[in-house]
């Protein structure tokens, strides 16, 4: 018992590991942290997502909805023939397992580091394609020149 109490006393006089969130924040999460989703772009601004719906079928909590459409020469959204016309993720349902990122054949969907995802309504937690698409190539923190 003395041994156990010694451990307790040792920690009693060390600075606490917990932080007083949200007043205090840790400087950064781990690189492997899985936070909010981003739909990433290629360097030239083309969307990586081809609307294949593999993330939809792999998602264990059925949080993703994709509706695909066809690229035309006048309206080329992604490389190839197909792109996602609609892309929605229900962030309330998402369990941040990262399977969508693993399944994605083009590396379009990635889980970022942002974890402050609270909202006041349920509807605001359904992220639509404009919310999910990264504002400019690389803004999600991933190298836009990567292959996948």
């Amino acid at each position: 018992m003395l041994k156990g109490m010694a451990v307790t006393f040792r920690y009693l006089f060390r600075p606490p590991i917990t932080v007083v969130y949200p007043e205090q924040k840790r400087p950064a999460v781990q690189p492997r942290f899985k936070g909010r989703h981003w739909l990433t772009l290629y360097e030239d601004g083309m969307e990586r997502c081809v609307g294949c719906e593999l993330c939809v079928i792999v998602c264990p909590s059925q949080a993703i909805y994709v509706k695909a459409a066809e690229n035309t020469p006048e309206h080329q959204v992604s490389k190839g023939e197909r792109y996602a016309e609609e892309f929605q993720i229900n962030e309330l349902r998402c369990i941040f397992c990262g399977l969508c990122e693993e399944a994605c054949p083009t590396g379009a969907i990635v889980l970022g580091r942002e974890y402050e995802l609270a909202g006041y309504t349920r509807a605001s937690m359904i992220y639509t394609k404009p919310m999910l698409t990264e504002p400019y190539p690389g803004s999600s923190g991933r190298d836009p020149g990567r292959e996948i």
């Binding site: 609307g51 719906e53 939809v56 079928i57 695909a68 459409a69 066809e70 023939e81 197909r82």
Partner: peptide, 9 residues
């Protein structure tokens, strides 16, 4: 039916 749906949908 082009890109309208996936078989599992």
């Amino acid at each position: 039916y082009r890109f309208i749906s996936r078989p599992w949908d």
